[in-house]
Amino acid sequence: MNKKSLIQKAAASPHIVWSVLFIIAPLIFVMYYAFTDKDGNFTFSNFTELFQASYLEIFMRSVCFAFLATVLCLIIAYPIAYFIAKAKPKTQKILIMLVMLPMWMNFLIRTYSWMALLEDTGIINTFLGIFGIGPIHMINTAGAVILGMVYNYLPYMIIPIHSVLSKVDNRLLEAAADLGSNPFTVITKVVFPLSVPGIISGITMVFVPSISTFYISQKLGGGNFDLIGDTIERQFQTAYNYNLGASMSFVLMLIIIVSMTIMNKYADDDGGVII
């Protein structure tokens, strides 16, 4: 027994090493920088600095954009996931691969492609120009930034929802119809409540990267829509203010933890309605 547990410990060791090196150690660094000044003395000044109107605005904007992107992803992804889950197993595999296909390409390249599409002289406007429409100003707008988020994170919403929906027992749908549900109430009363766990993980997987993203807002927003991610990046890359950057990261983590906790609570209370 003792020997076996030793082997088990040994088997777990790579994971422990990984966690310590790449999760716990960086977190400690973040904490250290967040609560110290440039000379390494303990201080709260990094946090009080964040209460400036300009930073608060950035935090607010980040939360709003991430929230909008998540809601849009959910609205778009649910019918797609449902449609895929209804397909034959073979077709399902192909469709899921198509959903993931863009993720095989580099994130930067995909974002650049959207720039080429959305620019005033870009592909979409050139095309519309043939019919005498436009040019419509799309790049460097808030819409473009949210579009970038929705586009990039949509697969993270589709896949967990699909995986839950594809496991819903067809007999339950028949039972609901048998008891008087029309095709619409079958979805609202049975399919949707049963897919809540997938929706929760989808929301988590979209909201977290959306709120912490940078680069999308820089490229598609033209620098007009600074998000927390961009601001943090600037502290580290250009301003070299590690302490302020770390405190922002710390607050961002808090926002994520709080919002996820609230959402999970909603899901636990009554498996039904989240939004």
């Binding site: 027992d169 007999r171 339950l172 028949e174 039972a175 609901a176 048998d178 409540p193 049963l194």
Partner: peptide
């Protein structure tokens, strides 16, 4: 008509 299904098919939620 109503049905009692094989393996019941009760709504787990």
């Amino acid at each position: 008509v109503n049905t009692v299904f094989q393996k019941y098919a009760l709504f787990p939620h």
